[in-house]
Nucleic acid binder design. Sequence first.
DNA 1: ATTTTTGTGGTGCGATCGCACCATAACAGG
DNA 2: CCTGTTATGGTGCGATCGCACCACAAAAAT
Lengths: 203, 203
Amino acid sequence: MPRQADHDLRRRQIAEAVWRLATRGGLEDVTLRQVATEAGVSARLLQYYFGTRDQLLLGALEILNAQAEQRARERLAMLGETPGLRAIVRGVLLELLPLDEERRNRHLVYAAYFVRFLVEPALAAVARDAPRALDQLVTDLISHARELGQARPDLDAPTEAALLVATAEGLQSSVLLGQRSAERAVALIDHQLDRVFIRSSGA
Amino acid sequence: MPRQADHDLRRRQIAEAVWRLATRGGLEDVTLRQVATEAGVSARLLQYYFGTRDQLLLGALEILNAQAEQRARERLAMLGETPGLRAIVRGVLLELLPLDEERRNRHLVYAAYFVRFLVEPALAAVARDAPRALDQLVTDLISHARELGQARPDLDAPTEAALLVATAEGLQSSVLLGQRSAERAVALIDHQLDRVFIRSSGA
DNA sequence: ATTTTTGTGGTGCGATCGCACCATAACAGG
DNA sequence: CCTGTTATGGTGCGATCGCACCACAAAAAT
């Protein structure tokens, strides 16, 4: 293969330009020329790496999802050797909040894609799976915590999981819009967690 | 005034076309020509009634907000003479869920505008006030309920109000994306309400 | 009935869109 | 040294964009 060039790096570089443009102005500002300028490459390159505009939007979203998953794993790993289940659930939920620039931009991009998720079948598939899995994950964590005595025994795990995730997503919107501070959102999440988990030494 | 023509009706008719187009395809599908075709009028009429495209988007949003407020009042009035405070809060929260076609489309339109809310100052003002007032309203209702013995005494009204509203908004997204049924969302809201209000005869 | 104001519609212009086509620089293999 | 595959850039075309301009129908005012 001649002309060494890291494909993944290039694609990521272009995808980042898509994200930046989408966070301001929404998807209608994500034109091929604008993306090319923002990424510092020629418009022809976008077609080479992604193809049509729809494929570019899809590809940029997939790369964003991959980054989100990786970052979540990294941050969960930073919780230490044996974190309490409450801390794990808390970490999962905090991924949904715009607590830093990267997460803020990520959720803004999702917001820009939102309406498209309902129409475009290819995008719908990408958006449909992740939150489903999130509910299931939190449900399992709560169930496990209950077995270990870290969660209140008299609660329905799927219900509590759905409420926790929904609360985090709702707080996400209000923080993005500047209606609430990130610190306040975290405090509210903690308050909601207190209803599920038992305050103990290990957490 | 010659040529009787109901301005408000015309504006509303055009605004509805904007909503329909925004719900599918997002704001980038809301072009002057498309709106004109969808509304069954000429493109020139849009300029006459709304002016530029940005003003059209702003106007359509204001009309949507007015409709939302009116519908909320209507539905709250249907609760009867002296509804319990729990029922009132429940009614307020249910306005945030896409329980019928009108509310579904309304929240889809909001989603289409979302990113713009952060950039366009004129739109930001429209989006900033409503949710703020919502939090305050629910806070007041909970405080009042506590005085009347309809809510648990050992809770912080602003915190519970914020959690309730955030939960409803989070459920809104998941229902719109088809990840959850509307009935399930209502059940979850009720579950959350049970943590704040006391099950009594009057509700 | 004529005038004037107001509502309505069609056409056109400059800019930009997505995308295809063509040219060329760079590097691996012969 | 070439030769060919791969990576990269520039230009152009048809369509569509927002929006301004112009023409005319209809009703109130005189």
